[in-house]
Amino acid sequence: MNLDARTLFFSLMVNVLLMSIALSFNVRWRSRSGIRAWNASLMIQALSWALLIAAYRVLPREMATLGVAGLTGAMSFVYVAAKTYLREPLVKPWLWGVPLVTTAVHWLVFSNYQARIAVTNAALALQIGWIAWVLVRPRARPQTDGRWRWLAATALMMSGVMVTGRFFLVTFSPEAYPSFEAGHWINTLGLVLTNADLTLGTLAFLLAHRDEAERELQLLATTDGLTGVMNRRQWMASAEVHVRLAERHVQPVTVMMFDIDHFKQLNDTRGHAAGDAALVRFAQALQGAVRQPDLVGRYGGEEFCVLLPQSDAVAAKAIDRRLREALARDAAPAQGLLITCTVGVAEWRPGARLDDLLAAADAALYRGKAAGRDRLEVGDISFGADRTPPTTG
């Protein structure tokens, strides 16, 4: 079968355009979704191939240079897509530098066919190799699924091999590659593989898009949407694990329950927007006051809970002190009022369950509110009549 390079270029353009249109209609876009960058890459590539084909008939220098600018710019959008899904910052020189330099050099050396083709393919090979390395390097985020990264890198590396092949072909055997429509097997195979690579790349970034959506759903299921801390359900499940570990290893664990003072009055006098802002500020201050292993959750309304693994009431009092300092230092100027809280603390003792800890902390909290609020009270666990603490000795 004789494959015509011009036909392959045209089919490549149509294939890329159709994939871009299909993505536009079938993917739910989000502001930071990498699939948007990938789709932009497909659109720009389709336009670039059209410009390169048209360059043989009208404004060859202008059309060809714009086409090369588009191809290198499209690779920059692939880089943006990869970095977005890896949740890593962009390196700006890789984003803008290669397309700008390649476009300028292509324009300047346009009259030298061998030089301009060599420059274009060298730039594309550099971009493709760098993006493939970014995807599979050892320090790529471990929490990202490796399947889409390796699939995308494989597609890139296949394309990169053929781009490099064209570079060496035009550099060392220019008579065999007199135009980008030449029927040399490297050029023909490269066009066939590019079609396949774009399909693989689309599949890879759709997988990345799906993984990102699953992470967001998991976050929504476990996180309080307003404050960003654990929601009650997730906090209870995580705290239960720590209480069981404390029981198994006979290690201390402490629960703190926080209630923002006069929160209803704040809502009534300054509105719910001010109340929401106070909740966010309080949660931020609380997260800054606790230690790395401590569990912070919104228990309900203006109540928050913290579980302190392997810690007693002394550690709880230290967190309480840091929290009050942070509220006075940071939250008060931002809100225009001093946010205070009442805190109930309960230490685990053998035989206690999470419900016992919460009940003891809640009772201590209400004692603090009855005593005037803005204070910390330590409670004591009392077992019901149907349960007795285990005996030792």
Rank of each mutant, 00 (worst) to 15 (best):
Y366S: 09
R244T: 14
I260A: 01
A246V: 09
V16S: 14
W49G: 01
D355Y: 04
L126G: 04
L337K: 05
Q292A: 13
V134R: 09
R57L: 08
V91K: 11
F172I: 04
W49T: 13
A123G: 15
V91C: 06
S48N: 11
A50H: 02
V58S: 15
I117P: 00
F77N: 03
W29T: 07
G275C: 11
L286K: 02
D197H: 06
T340Q: 07
R244F: 06
G372F: 05
A239S: 09
L3T: 03
A239G: 08
Q335V: 05
T388D: 12
A118D: 03
L295T: 03
Y79V: 06
L126I: 15
Y85I: 13
L47A: 10
I21R: 02
G368H: 06
R324G: 03
H272P: 04
K369I: 09
T84N: 11
A204T: 09
A239Y: 04
Y79M: 10
P178D: 11
A122S: 09
A326N: 06
P178E: 12
G351N: 08
V243I: 15
V378H: 02
F180P: 02
G73H: 01
E216V: 05
R137F: 05
A385W: 07
T144L: 11
K92C: 03
G228W: 02
S238G: 04
V255I: 15
F282T: 01
V280W: 00
P60L: 11
R298I: 03
S382V: 08
S11W: 02
G190R: 04
N2V: 10
R373K: 14
R387Q: 14
L198M: 13
E212C: 08
G73L: 10
R387T: 15
S179I: 07
L191N: 12
R291H: 12
G372D: 07
F205G: 02
V280G: 01
S173R: 14
A364K: 03
N231E: 13
